[in-house]
Nucleic acid binder design. Structure first.
Lengths: 102, 102
DNA sequence: TAAAGTAGGTACTTTAAGGTAACCAATATG
DNA sequence: CATATTGGTTACCTTAAAGTACCTACTTTA
């Protein structure tokens, strides 16, 4: 689990997963444009990590110019549901904080 | 959620939670001895973060020498169940990897 | 003929995180 | 009188991660 958390932790990672879950599979450039401020270098690195963990798939088509699509694998979907429940917790706690600050 | 993940990610953090869940509340020194290799500096820092997020409580008794106990709050318990399901995923994937390496 | 779009790779610099070690107060103990 | 105990704090150094900027090949479009 430590490995898994270590993968998720890096900046951008959960953002990328979030986008892929909501928008479906996207091309590299689309993904980059959807995540303001991320550099190609970071996006590539994160996607490689997620691909290695088989959370994201990479579909490369050697056309000119090349087309590469990224999307969630089955594991990615499973992870999504767990992250959703974690998100639920975080949201509730955040809400409770706001209420107590009142 | 990003904040929450960022808190959990640091080295030692999940280890600390794991120990507190299994062993119950512990003193600073006990905790430190239970987690081989961690420095006081890191342990303090992680505990402060978890305390701020109200995942762990801190019970300070100004005796001499002082006694400080750490344990999981209600939030800590809730988080524990979610982390357990994340752990389950990680374990299953790890097993699948071993099987495919065969 | 120059620019734009495609999916990155590479080199360099900067920043933040983590590790190490020394130090503290106050008392009990030998 | 020196030492150990407790729960840290502080200063310092090192390393790894992230950011910045520029580069590629090939084609289409203006």
């Amino acid at each position: 689990m430590d490995q898994l958390l270590r993968l998720l932790m890096g900046p951008w990672t959960t953002y990328i997963l979030w986008v892929l879950e909501n928008q479906g599979t996207l091309r590299f450039g689309e993904l980059k444009r959807t995540i303001p401020g991320i550099s190609s270098r970071m996006l590539t690195e994160r996607l490689r990590g997620l691909e290695t963990a088989q959370i994201v798939f990479r579909d490369y088509r050697p056309t000119i110019p090349p087309e590469v699509r990224y999307g969630l694998t089955e594991r990615g979907q499973e992870l999504g549901t767990v992250l959703a429940s974690l998100n639920l917790l975080a949201q509730r706690w955040f809400l409770e904080k706001k209420l107590s600050n009142h």
